[in-house]
Nucleic acid binder design. Structure first.
Lengths: 166, 166
DNA sequence: TTAAACTTTCAATAAGTATTGAAAGTTTAT
DNA sequence: ATAAACTTTCAATACTTATTGAAAGTTTAA
């Protein structure tokens, strides 16, 4: 496999994997491209490399910036904007985990809390309460765990793994 | 909030959350319905409750069974088939985590391994190799961690949380 | 067997998402 | 101020994915 092949394979795999971490294809591909680039890229560069439109590039870059994964970079003597992504995988994972907790997990916890505290003593309601309570507890614990993991700055994932083995 | 409201809210929230754990809306809704049901439900019951077609119900039930989350139940004296879902949230989480590891994470690890071992000494290739290697390592460690967590049968999530706090 | 009861399959279609491209908006240099 | 260089917005459209429903398939009871 030569460089070009490997690069395309990486960008495509990462792109189609977007769903796993909750973002769309173009967004994931742009991030992937920046992630392996040796220098900041302009919108033009990204459009060219990924063969996507200006509008698409602009919108997805904005989203990546909203996530806090991509930042604008000023390049001396250049008028247009350049972009880079967080290059440290651990920091990247930390940002993604935090955002997903905030955007997706927290709202669900809220709904589960509401649903699990209705006042109704019918057997069906009792089952609903019991099951949503269990789910609420699990989700909260998992979310707490993620935040715990994610806040250990140095080398968190390896450290955590070690702990779990003891 | 009365029972019906609470139930619908739960089913809808769970349904729209499907994407978070990698399944589609109808699939997630069927699972949610079974999860809070006091007894096994027939296809008819499910269609009726969720207002979805027979075909849709059939296909999504099959998928849920493929995932190992839902099982057929024989009800004495009844000709049609009835379905139940795993009722223990921890067991449920375990199954989902395992399946996602197998279906999504493992294949990505394979691609990252391939891409990160190309032979090319150009600066761009070096960066590609360096970054995909880091990603490979992180993904493998995370996957290992998930599998580790998931294999502790009893009360895994709470136990793990405790460990991480030490 | 036969036929009723039930389930699955799958082509057609609907619904949901992503993408384009051109017009409108903004910034910078002169 | 003007205009060139650049970015954003958004209605139209393409693409993808989910859903329907009816025909085909299967199982069971008599």
């Amino acid at each position: 496999m030569d460089y070009k092949e490997a690069k395309d394979k990486f960008i495509n795999t990462w792109g189609s994997l977007g769903s796993l971490w909750g973002i769309n294809k173009a967004m994931a591909q742009i991030q992937a491209l920046l992630f392996i680039s040796t220098k900041p890229l302009s919108m033009e560069d990204i459009m060219e490399e990924l063969k996507i439109s200006r509008g698409n590039t602009s919108m997805n870059l904005r989203q990546l910036m909203d996530w806090g994964i991509v930042t604008k970079e000023l390049v001396a003597g250049e008028r247009k904007e350049f972009f880079t992504t967080e290059k440290d995988v651990q920091e990247l994972a930390r940002i993604v985990a935090k955002e997903r907790s905030r955007r997706e997990i927290k709202p669900v916890i809220k709904v589960l809390a509401e649903v699990s505290t209705i006042e109704d003593t019918s057997p069906e309601a009792k089952e609903l309460i019991k099951q949503t309570k269990a789910l609420h507890e699990l989700t909260e614990t998992a979310d707490e765990m993620i935040n715990k993991l994610v806040n250990q700055k140095q080398n968190w994932i390896t450290k955590s793994l070690v702990k779990l083995f003891t």
